Computed example of a mutant assay.
Amino acid sequence: MASVPEFDLPRIGAPATRALAAAGYTRLDQLAGVSQKELKALHGMGPKALGLLRAALAERGLALGD
């Protein structure tokens, strides 16, 4: 049985990665359905990081919430 990695976020920059980790998000699948508004409110999360997250989620057939 394959284990789920503890941390599999794409390279989005240190401030955005720290912001996600502080909010409890360490895996990409945890972000599926999370609202963009909630993520934008995190200190360190900018439009470039959000775009990279959207693209990485789309590759897995997932998406952020509205």
Rank of each mutant, 00 (worst) to 15 (best):
A56W: 02
A23I: 07
Q36I: 11
G13H: 06
V4E: 03
L42F: 08
K40H: 12
R11I: 15
K48R: 10
E38K: 15
D8K: 05
E6G: 12
M1P: 00
S35E: 08
H43G: 06
A32T: 01
G46E: 05
A49C: 06
F7G: 01
A41E: 12
L64V: 01
A21N: 12
G13Y: 07
R11E: 07
L64S: 08
G44F: 08
G46Q: 06
G65P: 13
P5R: 00
K48Y: 09
K48I: 11
A22D: 13
A23K: 14
P5N: 00
R60G: 00
A14E: 13
G51K: 07
G61N: 10
D8M: 02
T17W: 04
T26K: 08
L57T: 04
T26G: 12
G51Q: 11
I12M: 11
T17A: 05
L20D: 04
L20T: 05
P5Q: 00
A63C: 05
A63L: 01
R54K: 15
L64D: 04
G24D: 07
K48V: 12
G24L: 13
Q36R: 12
A2N: 09
F7W: 11
G65W: 03
K40P: 04
L52S: 09
L50F: 13
E59H: 00
I12E: 10
A49E: 03
D66Y: 05
A2T: 07
A55Q: 13
G46A: 09
R54Y: 02
A56E: 15
D29V: 12
H43R: 14
G44P: 00
P5E: 00
L57F: 01
L28I: 15
Q30A: 14
T26E: 10
T26Y: 15
E59W: 04
T17N: 02
S3G: 11
G51W: 05
A56V: 03
F7V: 10
A14T: 11
M1D: 04
G46V: 10
L64Y: 10
L42G: 04
A21G: 08
H43N: 08
L50E: 03
D8E: 05
I12P: 00
L42W: 06
Q36W: 02
